[in-house]
Nucleic acid binder design. Structure first.
Lengths: 220, 220
DNA sequence: ACCTGAACACCGTTCAAGT
DNA sequence: ACCTGAACACCGTTCAAGT
């Protein structure tokens, strides 16, 4: 009975962020509070503040943790420009759909940490090798990232916001569609019914193809 | 002295949402609380709940209010596809940069209300007229919207999150850049220095051009 | 160096009343 | 129909201590 068999692995920024991401993955963003996080780590809330200055920094840590999961080894320097860019975009998308609940955080906060910026550097390298001028490459990577985030959002929907007012995302979307008058929203209704026949992945590939085609400099 | 000269214009969903947007525009998202909003309207917090079910609905109202500001009259049915699409995207961007503080809300919540969906319908019509199959048009509009939002975010930066820890967005960005090793982040540093020479608008136009070119069906 | 206790100044929202 | 009062169950964070 020397020491309590508690999980006193000692706190650290890393352990805190990991647990935070675990909570977000399991129960959504709203479940992540400093108090809940602390209790999950078997510690008093204020203990966190020794390792993390505030909740915003915790969010930055989550962004970094998610972005770090992107497999940067996918970049094959020998492959053609469009293939490299698509591969990188797909790798990004994969980690986003793996952490759907963290999507709003990742999308809202521009990457601040080295870990989060490493995939950005990879994308920029690809764009440079593809002949995109340096001045344009930041917008370009922003556009690609925006496409990936937008596609991921379509796929995962947001459980953030309305907690759950007795309706699944599909239900709610269907309900909205039902209230739209066919005279005012013909295209929307047509698109909504057509889209259900195709996989989200196919839609993402469509958008990715269009974007990469547009970014590819005209062959000279 | 019949009645007090208070601004008792009677509450309404519309008035509540308008005041909410005013607060967000003036002081940022974090300043918008039900209690603050109520006091600004000269009313007790609970009065709001008669007109708005909860805060999430308030956010939806803000999204609708912002999206409704998009000038849909810009769509000239006689113009060529790419011109129409670009014009619509620019109109969207204009309202986003006019309400920078509301950007995270608009970007995070897919439009739920008819007012917010009207510009979406316009975009879908343009895409349909441009020959985009209905099944693909929703991704396409998502991509365009994502581009606009991404460009707007680059321009306005987020004052959400870290309140203000004694540093402007530019300062912080510069500080981050300073910590990056030139060996590991050569492209990022080059892009960051090159980008400052160009206006955000020029960057947006670059991305928009690329995207529209990619979306335009190959001439047959 | 690392963690705790107690407190402060807030939140959104429910529930029962008032008019 | 429209608004109020009082309360509940939370928040993030500061500040002074403990070891």
């Amino acid at each position: 009975m020397a020491e309590e068999p508690r999980e006193r692995t000692a706190l650290s920024r890393r352990r805190i962020v990991q647990e935070a991401l675990r909570i977000v993955d399991a129960e959504g963003l709203r479940a992540l509070t400093m108090r809940r996080l602390a209790s999950e780590l078997g510690v008093v809330p204020m203990a966190l503040y020794y390792h993390v200055p505030n909740k915003a920094a915790l969010y930055d840590g989550i962004v970094e943790a998610v972005m770090s999961e992107i497999d940067i080894s996918v970049d094959d320097l020998a492959a053609p420009f469009d293939q490299r860019l698509k591969k990188a975009a797909r790798a990004y998308r994969e980690v986003l759909v793996a952490h759907p609940n963290a999507l709003p955080v990742v999308a809202d906060r521009s990457p601040n940490t080295t870990g989060a910026l490493r995939p950005v550097e990879t994308m920029l390298r690809i764009l440079r090798d593809g002949g995109i001028p340096a001045a344009d490459s930041l917008v370009a990577v922003n556009v690609v990232a925006a496409l990936v985030q937008g596609a991921a959002r379509m796929e995962v929907q947001d459980d953030l916001g309305t907690p759950q007012e007795g309706c699944s995302p599909e239900e709610q979307q269907a309900r909205v569609a039902a209230t739209l008058s066919p005279e005012e929203f013909p295209c929307l209704l047509e698109a909504a019914s057509a889209v259900s026949e195709f996989s989200y992945e196919a839609q993402f590939e469509f958008g990715l193809n269009a974007l990469v085609r547009g970014l590819t400099p005209p062959e000279r």
